[in-house]
Simulated assay, not measured.
Amino acid sequence: MTNRNEARSQRTGHELMEEIRTTVVPYGTAAIWFLGQESVVVKGGDTTIYIDPYYSSGEGTSSRAFPPPLAPQDITQASFVLITHEHSDHLDPDTLSVIAEQCPESVFTAPVCCHNVMLEVRIPEARIRPALTDEWVDYGSFRLKAIPAAHEELDEQEGQGHRYVGYLLDMNGVMIYHAGDTVVYPGLLERLQEQAVDIGMVPINGADAFRRSKGIVGNMGFREAGDLAYEAGFDLTIPLHYDLFPMNSEKPGYFIDYCYENYPYMRNKVMARTERLIYVKGS
């Protein structure tokens, strides 16, 4: 007999897309779907935004701990796509090329150093926007500000801006922060404290010398992530970047335990793969 959790894990990419398409998101709310690593879908009103969509299942992806929750071909609705940096688990050419073809109105924002790869997979230049840091850009249905990220160091390139970024989304009356890949660097907390962040999504996988020796660049660990969320005043914190590669993972329960012991009134949520979260501002 198949239990409810097994049935949920077996739903198709088409069923997931249908849920995203039909979910009604009134003003003052936001819908979020977690699709592994740092890939999330955010919906507010009629706007659907993909952040770091990584759904390839071909060559070079065999080290994934679990198969993609949907295929790129399943994506039939995307208003915007935000890319935080050029690493393949964040900028996935095979996924982006399909989104560009199947969602002809979609717009792509990424650091300038990513643009050549995006052009190579036939994303029209007119649909690509630079992720200019510390500047609000108004797209009508939402405002967007790229925030510098340090993976593990800040890397600002002349004429191209920051190589790594996170994003602030002011969308549907809800302020959302997606950190991308970053450690806590001087100035990050102050940037976040300037905003009233409702939902903060932060990596927790950490870094160490042994992973660096294998070329694995790290992020903040679960303790830093909890401290940052508390000091920045996030209303709800969602941990990211802990589940996809066994060599670069973390147990999200460590993050929950740390926050429970140190910040018992801080709200946190570990999301199941493909789970939908409906956030209601002020609830």
Rank of each mutant, 00 (worst) to 15 (best):
I20V: 13
P124V: 11
G58F: 06
V184H: 04
M118K: 09
H115K: 11
E275G: 12
V42G: 04
T23E: 07
I147Y: 00
E152Y: 13
L240M: 12
E59F: 12
P246V: 11
P26K: 09
A78G: 07
G13L: 13
S9W: 11
E59R: 15
R163Y: 07
L154K: 09
D155F: 01
V41G: 03
I123K: 05
N248G: 03
V112Y: 09
N116Y: 12
R21T: 09
V112W: 06
N3Y: 13
Y230D: 11
A232Q: 12
M247E: 14
I278C: 11
A149E: 01
C114E: 01
I20Y: 02
S88I: 07
L70P: 04
V112A: 07
P53T: 02
F210D: 12
T22K: 14
R276G: 01
E190N: 11
V137S: 12
A179K: 00
N262G: 06
Y177S: 02
T29K: 15
I49L: 04
L35W: 02
P104C: 12
G13D: 14
L240C: 03
Q160E: 15
M1N: 14
F234Q: 03
H90C: 10
G215V: 09
R127T: 07
P26T: 07
F222T: 03
H90I: 02
S97R: 15
S57P: 01
E153G: 04
N262C: 06
T76C: 09
Y27H: 10
S97W: 01
K145I: 00
L96M: 12
M247D: 14
C114I: 01
A225T: 12
P68V: 04
A179R: 00
M201P: 02
A229H: 09
S63P: 00
Y55N: 08
H241M: 08
M220E: 09
S106F: 04
G221P: 06
Q157I: 13
S39W: 00
E6K: 13
I278R: 13
S63W: 11
Y279M: 08
V112P: 01
P252A: 13
M17G: 14
M271K: 03
P246D: 15
E231P: 01
Y55A: 13
Q160I: 05
F234T: 00
G166D: 01
S57F: 15
V25R: 00
R267T: 10
S56W: 00
V117E: 13
M220R: 05
H162D: 14
A30K: 04
T22D: 12
F222K: 07
L91N: 07
I199S: 07
I123H: 12
G187R: 05
H85G: 09
R122Q: 06
K281D: 03
F142T: 01
W33G: 02
E190P: 04
Q77M: 07
M220G: 08
A78K: 01
Y55K: 00
G45A: 14
D257R: 14
V197R: 03
E224D: 15
S141C: 11
L228V: 05
G60D: 15
